[in-house]
Design a protein around this nucleic acid. Structure first.
Lengths: 243, 243
DNA sequence: TGTTGTCAGTTGTCTTACAACATTAAGGAG
DNA sequence: CTCCTTAATGTTGTAAGACAACTGACAACA
């Protein structure tokens, strides 16, 4: 139990969210005028600088826009917000669950090996450093929907490979080794599964896959995983806002 | 010529960018301490509220983070910035050019028709409203790399279809009708080209495609295009940051 | 009729002050 | 000497007030 009684977020962040709520709840449409700074400071009983910082944040997110001397207005972008965009970092397990897939996790292989050039570069490995290569398949109702390969620097998980349970969430596992990924740089593309993977695992009907190659970083900015996630095209699609 | 002499951006926005530059130029690494607010106000000769708004913006972008009573620090995320993320809205033409593809634009068909249910919903059409359906293929060195279908409300371009040059940038065309798209809500997935498209246009070797379905909105928040862009998997991959 | 001046409303910026939190060093008790 | 307490200092969080700059509307004027 560590649910704080009072909101520990800074005043400005609370304000930002309350104003965003206000826009939604009042049913304000693009172009509608927001209350003035004077009105908002009175309403929320806060100082003008605090209010302005909150408004600036909403402005940066294109929720609102300003016209000097006229006021603040609801931006068109406020209507174009996407519920669960691909740009939010989360584990593959959580992502799949959100899509309604209760995935069974099958470990195809796990081994220690020398990294290839790409992996070594992405994980910023020293010469000679080795990686754990984890190859998994996720099934939904006995149907394969995700083929994943993860590369983890050996130094992060110094245990014997067969002492580790690889079927759970990789993020949780890394969390236990103080290396929970917090963010990533990702590249998405459309591909077919590699031939050898298809043949070894009987995945002839997998069809086109959305490949996400991502290098995941922990809170300190160090790369902890290089992941290749092949999302079965017939089962996954990701949303995002562009502006 | 309407090039303003002085920077018309607000002080805060200029500050935000200058501080971001400062982090890059000084070669500050994740975890490194930024100058204090007092030092920065002196350095840039600006007030503390203005500075704090700028810093708050960088904080929202995860470029920096704050610890109350200790100072501001460079976030790990600052190193994970992606050069040209998919989340930035731009025309397909510009996007392709950036990838080094000088595309020839082939119009396969253009017609006025009744929208299907999805299109009508995405474009918020009234019953009976009609759309222009524009079907195009983009070639790079005689190789097809992009198959696009665009739906535009008929009311936006009320000209006779054969009076319009459809080979150019659709964004520029809409711009001329005061409906330039500024942002979009997009869904990406991996698919094969529809069978009928493959057959009609001899695209058997196109392979897997990255499909981006996006509804584009103008500055006022009105939908102006519903676009289906099939990016040939072997030629395109998009980057983004997740956090 | 068209231009200019004035005023109120709104956002942009600055100054000053104090509160809250973190770190460090000094001092005292054992 | 070691450990704890306490105070001092540095840093960010929040508040209040003031003036500048911009917009829009209307009155005054030529």
């Amino acid at each position: 139990m560590d649910e704080p009684l009072r909101d520990t977020r800074t005043l400005v962040i609370q304000l930002r969210d309350r104003i965003a709520d206000l826009i939604r709840d009042e049913g304000l449409n693009p172009g509608d005028k927001l209350p003035t700074e004077a009105q908002l400071t009175q309403r929320f009983k806060i100082s003008r600088p605090a209010l302005r910082e909150a408004l600036k944040l909403l402005e940066q997110d294109s929720i609102i826009y300003v016209e000097h001397g006229r006021g603040r207005f609801v931006s068109a972008m406020s209507a174009v917000q996407v519920d669960r965009p691909i740009t939010v970092f989360e584990s593959v397990t959580d992502m799949a669950r959100h899509y309604g897939y209760a995935t069974a996790n099958k470990v195809l292989s796990v081994a220690e090996e020398a990294p290839d050039a790409t992996t070594a570069e992405q994980l910023r490995l020293q010469p000679g450093e080795r990686v754990i290569r984890l190859e998994r398949l996720r099934l939904h109702k006995d149907e394969p929907i995700l083929y994943c390969v993860d590369f983890i620097p050996r130094s992060i998980i110094p245990l014997r490979l067969y002492d580790v349970d690889w079927t759970g969430s990789l993020l949780d596992l890394l969390d236990q080794h103080r290396s929970r990924p917090r963010m990533s740089a990702a590249i998405v593309s459309a591909v077919m599964l590699p031939d050898d993977v298809v043949e070894r695992n009987d995945l002839r009907d997998f069809g086109p896959a959305l490949l996400i190659r991502e290098t995941c970083f922990n809170a300190a900015g160090l790369p902890v995983v290089y992941a290749l996630d092949y999302h079965r095209g017939s089962h996954f699609s990701f949303s995002l806002a562009r502006k």
